[in-house]
Amino acid sequence: MAWLLVIIAGLFEVAMALSLKASRGFTALGPSLSFLFFSVLSFGLLSLALKRLDIGTAYAVWVGVGAVGTSALGMAVLHDQVSPLKIAALALIVVGVVGLNLAGGGH
């Protein structure tokens, strides 16, 4: 259950980052409030998961889900630059997160 919380928290981190982009430097009220909302959800769920998981591994998974998800949506929806090197780097993040998880991170 704790790992599910980390993954959901990572997805909220993606929403947080996309809201931050849409806020235009916190000048747009709606996206700025969305950023705050998703931040609280993301950090709240992560903090609940940390009651049962090691901080290093859980944080790496949270950041990995957020980074890969945000980059993928940026490329797919926001027309961010796509390159083979960028795709390979994102794949390495996934491999690293899976490796940390396999190395053990729960109590």
Rank of each mutant, 00 (worst) to 15 (best):
V6F: 10
I7Y: 08
G10N: 04
G10Q: 02
L11Y: 11
F12W: 12
F12N: 05
F12T: 00
F12K: 07
E13H: 13
E13W: 11
V14A: 01
V14Y: 10
A15I: 05
M16K: 05
M16G: 03
M16R: 14
L18C: 05
L18Q: 14
L18R: 12
S19F: 10
S19A: 15
S19T: 05
S19D: 03
L20K: 00
S23D: 05
S23L: 10
S23I: 05
G25Q: 02
G25W: 11
G25E: 06
T27E: 12
T27W: 14
L29I: 14
L29D: 07
L29V: 09
L29Y: 10
L29R: 13
G30E: 13
G30A: 15
G30W: 15
G30Q: 13
G30K: 02
S32A: 09
L33N: 06
L33E: 08
S34P: 00
S34D: 10
F35T: 00
L36N: 03
F37E: 02
S39H: 09
V40Q: 00
V40G: 01
L41Y: 08
L41I: 14
L41D: 00
F43L: 14
F43I: 13
F43W: 13
F43D: 00
G44F: 14
G44A: 12
L45K: 09
L45I: 02
L46M: 12
L46K: 07
L46V: 03
L46I: 06
L46G: 04
S47L: 13
L48V: 01
L48Y: 09
A49G: 01
L50R: 00
K51R: 09
R52V: 09
L53K: 07
L53S: 08
D54Y: 15
G56E: 03
G56Y: 14
G56R: 06
G56D: 07
T57Q: 07
T57G: 01
A58L: 05
A58G: 04
Y59D: 04
Y59T: 06
A60C: 08
V61G: 04
V61F: 12
V61H: 08
W62G: 02
V63P: 03
V63F: 12
G64M: 03
G64V: 09
G64P: 03
V65H: 07
V65T: 05
G66Y: 13
A67D: 07
A67I: 15
T70M: 09
T70L: 10
T70P: 02
S71G: 00
A72P: 01
A72G: 02
L73W: 03
L73Y: 01
L73F: 13
G74K: 04
M75R: 03
M75C: 10
M75Q: 12
M75N: 02
L78W: 15
L78D: 01
L78R: 11
H79E: 05
Q81E: 10
S83Y: 12
S83Q: 07
P84W: 15
P84E: 09
K86I: 02
A89R: 11
L90E: 07
L90A: 02
A91K: 10
A91E: 02
L92R: 01
V94D: 08
V94N: 01
G96F: 08
G96N: 05
V98A: 13
G99P: 06
L100I: 09
L102K: 06
A103N: 05
G105D: 02
G106Q: 14
H107C: 14
H107V: 09
H107M: 10
